[in-house]
Structures are given as C-alpha cells and as structure tokens.
Simulated assay, not measured.
Amino acid sequence: MKNSISILLVMAGLSLSAQVGINTASPKAKLDVNGDVNLRNKIVVQNAQDNTLSQGNNDQILVSQGVGYAPIWKSLRIPEYEPNKFYLIFNNSFSDRTGVKFTSGEQSTITSKNTAFTKGADISNLPGFKKIAGLSQPISVFSTDSKTYFQFETVVQADLPANGTTDISIDYACGIFVDDKLVNLRQRNLKASSATSTFITHNQIGVVANLSKGQHTVSVACSRLASYRTGNDVVLAVGINADTNINNFIAQSSLKVDVYEIPQVFNPIIN
C-alpha cells in the first residue's frame, strides 16, 4: 500500500509541477532522478508523426536525435572477426589537379641517391622534393598488427622538343611518405619522343607494415633529379600539364590508401 501511495504522489507531482526531483532539490528536467533506476516492465517512445508508441525490438537501444526531438530505437551490432586474420578497416582515396612543376633551376642537389633514398628518410633530408598538396591527407590505424597499401597514379609531362639523334630526357622520382618519412619511392626517366611535349603515366604501389596506432598523415612528393641535353626553359610537371596538348583533368593525380588490420579494437556499429 505504501508503494502505491508513493507512486501516486510522484505522478501527482508530475502533473502539478513543471519539474520533479527524486533525491535532488534542484531538478533539471520534468523528472530528475539522482540515483539508480530499476525498470521492471517496458520503455516506450512516441512517434511524433503518428503518435504511435514503440517499444523497440530485442537488443535495441535508445539513441538521442538532439534537442527538441524524441529519441529513437537503434540496433547495436559488433562486427565478428576471426582471430589472426587481416581485415580492411580503413580505406580512402584522394585526388589533386594542382600538381607540382620544376624548372631547370629547381633540380635536386642530391648527389648520392643510394644513401639518400632509404626507407624512413625524412623529407627534410631530400632537397628538391615538392609535395602534391591535395594528396597530403590523414589516415587512421587502430591495431599494432597492420599492413597499409598505397596506390599512386599521375601523369608526368615536360615541354620537351622532338627527340634528336642524341636522346633528350629528364630523370625524376616520386615518393610516398607517412608522417614525412619515406615508405616507398620510384625513379623514372621521361624521354623525348618524335612529337613535342612528351607525357607518360606514372603508377606506383607501396606497402608499409605495423604503423603505430592512431592518426597519421600520408603524402606524396616528387623531384626533378637530372636533365640530359634539355634547354634551360624546359619545365617538368607532375600531376599538372606542362603544355596544351593535355589538360589538368588528364594529368591529375590520385592516391588510394587501404589499411588492413588484425582487429584489436571492436567498434560498435549503430544502424
């Protein structure tokens, strides 16, 4: 009987007062309970559109929709993973149409490539390398057991004349960096052809294992390494056109990043 009277008093208080507090003298809502709540039956949510009441389904939780909106029922799922197997946890792709250009005066001063081009080299120790701005992006790693794959594609062009009896060409290199540390590099030669303003497609795939957990920054930078029988006015362009026989849409760069992990963090998915 005492319990029934208490419940009636609470309900009466709710109807008479704007705010009722249980175990608190300063309630901050219509019903403010300072302590544990034990529900023995059900919770229902009213649909604002048709005023129907929903109890939700098994294993669903209430999710806030923000101020002024009633909460809704959502399913909570935790992905199932087999132990010691890699899964694609993070993937993204980026593009850039700005690219980078190099005049003959911007040629790299690196003399010993075998010494300079090593895994883990800091970009500050690689003079002449320019980053492709739109490809510098954050990536996330959630496990200490991971493999991160990179796929970089671009177009390289120089406003070279038609090739003569002695080859005219330019050496260049592009590197993939994580937190400004070199993880992959490709060096190539752009050779003049029978037509002017030669261009080639540059493809590059790299992988790095076991990046530390957390957020990292991936970037791509390129350099003009050497020139052979070219004029001082010849420009090398990576990810941007050097002449009008192609445009920046054709020459644009792209970078795809896939992070495979043996999961250690199981993030719940709400849908």
Rank of each mutant, 00 (worst) to 15 (best):
N41H: 05
P138Y: 08
P83N: 11
L88R: 13
K113P: 07
Y87T: 01
F86Y: 14
I61V: 11
P83Q: 05
F117C: 00
I110N: 10
E106H: 05
N47Y: 05
K130V: 04
D122E: 05
G68K: 04
V20D: 00
P83A: 14
S75M: 05
K30L: 10
A48R: 13
N114V: 05
S140I: 11
T115G: 04
F129Q: 04
K42H: 11
G134W: 05
S136C: 11
S143V: 02
A121I: 01
T24W: 00
G66E: 05
K113Q: 12
N125I: 10
Q137C: 04
F94Y: 15
T144Y: 09
T52C: 05
P71W: 05
K85L: 13
D96E: 03
K131Y: 15
S75H: 08
Q65S: 10
S54F: 06
W73F: 09
T111G: 11
S26N: 15
N84T: 11
R40Q: 13
A70G: 05
T115A: 15
T24K: 03
K101C: 00
V100N: 02
A70Q: 13
I61N: 04
Q46F: 07
A29L: 06
K28G: 15
L76R: 10
N38M: 12
K119A: 14
S112P: 04
N92Q: 15
N92D: 15
T115F: 01
N114T: 02
T98N: 04
A70C: 09
T115Y: 05
I110G: 01
W73A: 04
T144H: 11
G128Q: 07
D96G: 08
S140D: 07
A29G: 12
T24A: 01
S140V: 08
I22L: 13
Q65E: 07
V63M: 10
F86G: 06
E80Q: 15
K119F: 11
I123G: 07
Y87E: 03
L76W: 07
K113D: 12
N41E: 09
Q46M: 14
S104M: 10
D32L: 04
D122P: 02
W73G: 04
W73E: 00
P27N: 09
N47K: 11
L88K: 10
D36T: 08
S112E: 14
S104Q: 12
N34G: 01
S124D: 14
